[in-house]
């Protein structure tokens, strides 16, 4: 069976590491709040999903920042991350440049995909980041990235992220088996936010702990209860070190929280915990803890927040000021020979 955190072993985390975790979470939240604002600015009258500067589905990750911060703290830009339809927190925590990221979300030519991808399809060669809008299907490509790294003699690893709903998909299980069979340097991460859109995990999943599924493939599994970034950092550190050392894959499930809807516009009428979900915000809790531990004071908090706001607003301004794609070029980039620029 898998193991479960909280464990008593996280006291030793360096203050600089904790500041980094906090800063990552604040930057992500600042970004998500800015996208939230821009997304809803012009959807009216009423709510029309196709209207406005940022049209289409929008899946924001408020509440899930401890997962991305705790995992990505162990990665370099040489490591790959494959994320989900809710990708912003992992993209930012892994170091994606905010300007081209925001521009892609706004569908502009200066975006990562020149407006061809959108918020569920962010591809960044500089940080080996990609994501897929199809549940669990980001797992198999991570195997190939890890395979390529190993063949090239690199110690880079791949991190594959899904939600708890994906653990019932075939791609999830095929990937765990193949990674274990071939001893690939992959860290599988499951973000358990309790909800597959409107379906609670109790109605979707036959066991309470997806990390237990690791045992079926002979690899370590660990569940982090409590959405605690220090715990995620510790558990992910072991899994990343194991992968980097050539000892094979691990599975980590983090019990996190989806503070907002599945997508924007989701009224969440199905959700009995709606009134209390704000109480589970991991960022104020972590801020208090760091303050009590003397790691963080009000001045630093203000500075970190101001820096995040400045970076995010710069990216939003850049995105809005970038040209929209030329409709005549919708057919460009289907094939590689069309990508000369």
């Amino acid at each position: 069976m898998s193991t479960t955190t909280p464990a008593p072993s996280v006291q030793g985390l360096e203050p600089e590491v904790r500041l980094g975790l906090y800063s990552s979470m604040v930057l992500v939240r600042t970004f998500e709040e800015a996208i939230l604002r821009e997304y809803h600015a012009d959807k009216g009258p009423g709510f029309d999903i196709g209207k406005g500067l940022v049209p289409g589905e929008m899946h924001l990750a408020a509440g899930e920042e401890p997962v991305s911060a705790g995992v990505c703290a162990h990665l370099t830009a040489n490591d790959a991350v494959t994320a989900t339809h809710r990708p912003h927190h992992f993209a930012i925590a892994h170091g994606m440049a905010l300007r081209p990221m925001a521009a892609e979300i706004f569908g502009r030519t200066s975006g990562l995909g020149r407006g061809r991808g959108g918020h569920m399809h962010l591809f960044d060669p500089d940080t080996h980041f990609s994501c897929s809008g199809i549940i669990a299907e980001g797992y198999p490509p991570a195997l190939g990235m890890a395979f390529a790294f190993t063949r090239r003699g690199s110690d880079a690893i791949a991190v594959a992220v899904t939600g708890e709903g994906a653990a019932n998909q075939g791609a999830f299980h095929e990937s765990l088996n193949l990674a274990a069979l071939w001893n690939l340097p992959v860290v599988f991460v499951v973000e358990d936010n309790d909800w597959g859109i409107s379906v609670p995990r109790s109605a979707s999943t036959s066991i309470p702990n997806n990390a237990d599924r690791a045992a079926a493939y002979g690899i370590p599994g660990h569940r982090v209860e409590g959405n605690d970034v220090d715990d995620v950092h510790e558990v992910a550190g072991r899994a990343v070190a194991r992968a980097r050392a050539g000892e094979g894959p691990s599975l980590i499930e983090v019990h996190t929280v989806r503070m907002w809807g599945h997508f924007e516009g989701d009224a969440q009428g199905y959700r009995p915990d709606l009134a209390e979900v704000g109480d589970r915000d991991p960022i104020p809790a972590y801020e208090d803890r760091l303050r009590s531990a003397g790691v963080l004071d009000d001045e630093q908090i203000a500075r970190i927040r101001a820096d995040a706001t400045e970076r995010v607003e710069d990216a939003i301004t850049f995105a809005k000021g970038s040209p929209e794609p030329d409709p005549a070029e919708a057919g460009m980039y289907v094939f590689a020979e069309e990508a000369q620029s």
């Binding site: 198999p140 195997l143 190939g144 890890a146 395979f147 088996n177 193949l178």
Partner: peptide, 23 residues
Amino acid sequence: DTPISETGFIGLAVGAATEGMRP
């Protein structure tokens, strides 16, 4: 040789290709 796991190994090929291999 792969297991009978087409999503797994074709997806693996996709990922390896994005990292510069030619599977």
